[in-house]
Design a protein around this nucleic acid. Structure first.
Lengths: 238, 238
DNA sequence: GGGCTTATTGTACAATTAACACTATCTTTG
DNA sequence: CAAAGATAGTGTTAATTGTACAATAAGCCC
């Protein structure tokens, strides 16, 4: 083995994870941002992220950031892309591995901590300029999400354990920024046999209450084993 | 800004790019591997990759590796995933950003260089144990490729500038490991209007020669502008 | 009970996919 | 030069899936 020393010059970089945390609320897709309280980008909104520890796996680091910033464990998490333009960080060469996560907004209790003065949900359609290259990261993550929800039943991660078909449809509409046709959407999603009818209905609404469903995890596993392919479509463009 | 020094402890990692270079030849999907001639993993086959320079962009580093190892520029390149398990490299904390690239095998003139004693194409179905975690990287890249060719017309990057419809079909079949129905495949691909009929045919074959086509880049751009969606399917599972 | 609001459901037509077999054209060989 | 061998090329039908579209149902509020 060549002496480790001959490669010393390369061991001068740092890397971080940044988390695009998606939530769904008030019919809108939102992401959780923190407001920085130090330079660089003092006062800018930024993605929750931090340095990866020397002996920590990347996924674990992303999980840790989630735990520390929003107090959640075992959340849906997916690596998206790695950003490493030479000038993207003032401290030196910092490359960041971007993740996105899907959380149920009701479960989140954001805690201010350290660099995060404030933690807040922002509608994805209405983010100002973000710190560093975080605007670009969000954009890449959002595109990934739009694709992923077509072929994986991950939308449910954003909804409470019991939801209505209308909730589910609104979720897809918000993410894709399209309108879906109600009857066709229901027919399609019900035909997949992935929803458990909970046998109860909404309460406290001023109209006919909708039936509540949950995602049937076990059924999904079983279907996957026989080669089932989840797929929803955004429908014809006008 | 906090003193740069307070973060020094984090600036002790190195990162590399590793390239899964796909080619298509003899009806098989292949990847280009180098045989290492130093520890660790002396004599193992490995992905072409190297450290990223301090002031070099990630994509640029991947391009550089391609240029140095196989003498190609302007090749189709896509970032796949970043691997950073703490123990994955003996020299210290090394995370690697994996790319895949699609090349026309005839264009490639692999050059032995540095750590690469030997450079050789290997059928993806028949790789032994690879160095480091490169086996896993290949597997992730391959899955990504299988998905990507469904919705992007990138298969052409693997074929010579003039190819037959049968070539194209075999390419998809090799990547997906399925059989496609000839008439349906042709109908579908021709209906997309993405192929330019070159008006000439194969030569030197001992049977009826097939017409030659090329991918019509301009046409594709035009179609994209009007919202066209490329999509091919693997067909029904048996 | 009437009005308001959202939930729920079915049908007909269009488009796409899937299955399937024969003829055409070239080379090689006897 | 005829026959054999090999791959190219092509069209129709049935089944499935997608799309468009509107009336009735069920609860709440007054």
């Amino acid at each position: 083995m060549p002496p480790r020393e001959s490669f010393n010059a390369y061991f001068k970089s740092a890397f971080t994870v940044d988390n695009v945390i998606f939530g769904f609320d008030e019919g809108k897709l939102k992401i959780l941002l923190i407001r920085r309280n130090e330079e660089p980008y003092d006062n800018y909104w930024a993605l929750p992220g931090y340095f990866v520890m020397q002996d920590e796996d990347l996924d674990a680091a992303a999980q840790r950031v989630l735990r520390e910033m929003v107090g959640l464990e075992n959340v849906y998490l997916e690596q998206v892309h790695t950003f490493g333009a030479p000038g993207r960080h003032d401290f030196g060469r910092v490359i960041t591995v971007a993740y996105y996560s899907l959380v149920k907004i009701a479960d989140v209790s954001p805690k201010a901590s350290g660099v995060a003065q404030e933690v807040m949900w922002h509608p994805v359609q209405d983010l100002g300029e973000l710190a560093f290259d975080h605007g670009e990261i969000v954009s890449v993550a959002l595109n990934r999400l739009k694709r992923s929800i077509r072929t994986r039943p991950i939308g449910f991660e954003l909804l409470p354990p019991a939801f209505t078909l209308t909730d589910l449809q609104h979720l897809y509409e918000a993410i894709w920024e399209t309108d879906l046709e109600k009857r066709n959407f229901r027919k399609k999603i019900l035909s997949m046999d992935l929803l458990k009818d909970l046998g109860r209905s909404q309460e406290g609404v001023a109209h006919r209450p909708a039936k509540l469903y949950s995602f049937d995890e076990d059924r999904y596993q079983a279907l996957m084993d026989e080669g089932f392919n989840f797929e929803l479509r955004e429908g014809k463009r006008k």
